[in-house]
Design a binder for these strands. Structure first.
Lengths: 229, 229
DNA sequence: CATCAACTTAAGAATTAATTAATCTTAGCG
DNA sequence: CGCTAAGATTAATTAATTCTTAAGTTGATG
């Protein structure tokens, strides 16, 4: 699901009123907000924080938004960052210049917070959809990659069959949380499937055989948890 | 580089004048254009032609644009198609409803052809960036050339029939990613085509016969993946 | 030290894929 | 058109892996 909390926005405008207005509205939604008041600062800040989306004013003293946008697109690592122009200039040629500079959207002032928020959301959602969001869990010497279906421990690849993989994936989704047998059933087998009492044990055993005995901790009468050191 | 010729657009509007105006302007750019004059037709047509982008009017008799958009988003295989609303309704609440229905952009009439074209281009570019359907895939000792329909392994050219080529091309589009049988069906055969359970197996077998057994890895109950070393 | 949950092992059940051969489909060509 | 051959699909059989169960054992804990 879409969560504004997962995204960082960089707001760039030379007018402090607008920065405050935007900051207020967007952080209320949950976004992490950074601000800059000119193009040069924006470049430096963007390089540093790698925002998901940059909201860029066009008319700024010194380096204007178009120029800033072009320069951002030159920077390796920021080529794919989303850029939205936010400006009072509604003229066609200005919009066209904006898109030619590499913008993803162009919104004219006055700003309607609700509409802006929806546009931001649409861009972020679309970008996310396209990014093969490979669900990789990494901690300590563990790497669990669902897309590739591999488990790596200390650089050594281990092949796991489906149920074992799912089980490890679950335990690793919250390392050091204790998962009760019931939780494990529900997640790995599904609420409706009924299997015998010892099925989990056997799978745990096989996992331990493959990844070593030190990782999965048994808590008698409570459940299992994954150990991280 | 961006080429309008590579994209198919579906235009939906109940006013014929507008359809003609848009068709004229966009086909001049090079896009392949299909048109519909109501929501129901649009759904059917979209399913059939799988456009890259749908331009949707909101106010239409019977099924309006919002509803049409929602229904498109329900259709497997069209979940990710780009949708742009194109409407006279500039009210905030209408825009918000549009984005909530799953739109990627919302443009208000009167239409400025140049600006519209830039917005369309921005959407298509963004969507393409992450689509890994490059014409030539190269990694390790593999070269897969979609244009010439040729696979080279260690300098040796191998000719593959259509389905086998598509299958290998898919696996190679993300080496070491696991492709489930369903994904393979959808990409190689198409969402609607129904073929038997063993069809993939046989194609995999023929591929292995030709490229060697070491490349395609079976993950029982999960799918297949291409190995890279 | 009794109890009971968890461990272990091995066997067989179930699922899934590989293989092979036969059949169906399609494109190209006389 | 009908023939042919390559390609695609299906069907039937076999093979392999994965999952589950059963039964005896272990060991932590109160």
């Amino acid at each position: 699901m879409f969560k504004a909390e997962d995204y960082t926005l960089l707001l760039v405008d030379d007018e402090n009123d607008i920065l405050e207005f935007l900051s207020y509205n967007l952080s209320k939604e949950g976004y992490k907000i950074h601000t800059c008041s000119n193009g040069s600062d924006a470049l430096a800040e963007a390089k540093k924080i790698k925002p998901d989306l940059i909201l860029l004013d066009i008319m700024m003293p010194m380096k204007d938004g178009i120029e800033t946008c072009q320069e951002i697109r030159e920077i390796k690592g920021l080529k794919n960052v989303l850029i939205m122009f936010l400006t009072a200039r509604a003229e066609d040629y200005s919009q066209i210049a904006g898109f030619d500079a590499g913008a993803d959207d162009y919104v004219t002032k006055p700003i309607k917070p609700k509409v802006l928020q929806k546009r931001i959301e649409a861009l972020l959602k679309r970008a996310k959809k396209n990014n093969a969001d490979n669900d990789v869990i990494q901690f300590g010497n563990f790497i669990i990659d669902s897309e590739r279906y591999v488990v790596k421990i200390d650089e050594k690849e281990i092949n796991l069959p489906r149920k074992e993989f799912k089980l490890l994936h679950l335990l690793a989704s919250k390392p050091s949380k204790v998962f009760s047998r019931e939780e494990i059933y529900n997640h790995v087998w599904g609420d409706d499937v009924v299997v015998g009492d010892r099925t989990i044990d056997v799978h745990i055993r096989k996992l331990r055989e493959k990844i070593g005995n030190d990782y999965i901790i048994t808590l008698k009468g409570v459940g299992y948890r994954l150990n991280i050191d």
